[in-house]
């Protein structure tokens, strides 16, 4: 984790000394939203769905830390409660990205030939697709909800991962240990998913983080357009649309969930970048 003092790139060393503070903060925020998602109802003393007709769209006060929204609901409680749908869907998308890109990417990279060519042509094609727009259209037409959106994103998010995992596998395949294993007669799947897979695990984890951030932004965007999350649920994207109208009365009602999306997405991206950079630095060192 800490680069040795003898590292030839002095600047690289200072980069490492700096980033962890930010990365630590990022981890802290991710953990905080996890806690909020799991134990949120214990933290907040006001129910996120309780409406108070006597305090509608009020500014932050002692009881309402972030004020209230247009129906008199407590914004702070709703932001805390919104962390559930902000975490669950993206987690599913990221997990499926992890599995799919691991299976297909390593397979394509290791096999080469026709399998590889076909996979990469499909991936190239998928890169040209406006994934979020397709999700918008399909969710509208099928009149599906949150989980349909999650399902579509699982598929349309995977192209970048596959490309990256495949090229990492290509690099691994050229290494002597793979050659040695092949000669020893170790089964193909074992070389692929056990040994190569373990060696490129940091890249898979970095992908996981980036998928998560992308899905978070996409799902919140869908909710912002009134798709996916059901009306009435505490969802950050939905809160943005609902509270955009009361931007004059209580700006925090819209700014707080927006900020939550930005900070969580940035944190997760930062962690992903860090895992990836550390891995690259390690391979430079070698």
């Amino acid at each position: 984790m800490i680069a040795p003092v003898t590292l030839p790139h002095r600047r690289l060393g200072s980069r490492f000394a700096r980033i962890p503070i930010l990365v630590a903060l990022a981890w802290l925020f991710v953990l905080a939203s996890l806690v909020a998602a799991l134990f949120g109802h214990l933290i907040t003393h006001i129910s996120p769905s309780a409406q108070d007709p006597f305090s509608i769209a009020t500014l932050p006060t002692g009881t309402h830390l972030l004020g209230t929204d247009g129906l008199g609901r407590d914004v702070f409680s709703r932001v805390v409660a919104g962390s559930t749908s902000a975490l669950v869907g993206p987690l599913v998308v990221a997990c499926s990205g992890f599995l799919l890109s691991g299976l297909v990417g390593i397979w394509a990279g290791y096999s080469g030939g026709l399998v590889d060519t076909i996979t990469m042509r499909i991936v190239d094609f998928m890169f040209a697709l406006p994934g979020l727009l397709i999700t918008i259209v399909v969710v509208t037409l099928v009149q599906g909800g949150y989980w349909l959106a999650v399902g579509i994103l699982c598929v349309l998010n995977v192209q970048g991962d596959i490309r990256l995992i495949r090229s990492a596998t290509l690099a691994q395949r050229a290494l002597p240990y793979v050659e040695a294993e092949r000669i020893t007669g170790i089964p193909r799947w074992r070389i692929m998913y056990r040994h190569i897979g373990r060696n490129i695990l940091p890249i898979l984890l970095a992908d996981f983080a980036i998928d998560f951030a992308g899905a978070l932004v996409a799902l919140a965007g869908l909710a912002f357009l009134g798709l996916g999350a059901q009306p009435g649920t505490a969802d950050w994207g939905l809160m943005l649309t609902e509270n955009e109208q009361i931007l004059f009365q209580n700006p925090w009602a819209a700014l707080a969930p927006g900020l939550a999306i930005v900070v969580l997405a940035t944190s997760v991206n930062l962690i992903g970048d860090f895992i990836y950079e550390r891995r690259r630095a390690a391979s430079v060192e070698r």
Partner: peptide, 22 residues
């Protein structure tokens, strides 16, 4: 680069509306 690639446009838009219009 990290912040702009993480911040979705709908949040940026609302934030700018708040800042530069309200």
């Amino acid at each position: 680069s990290i912040v702009t690639s993480s911040a979705p446009s709908y949040v940026l838009a609302i934030a700018l509306v708040y800042l530069l219009a309200i």
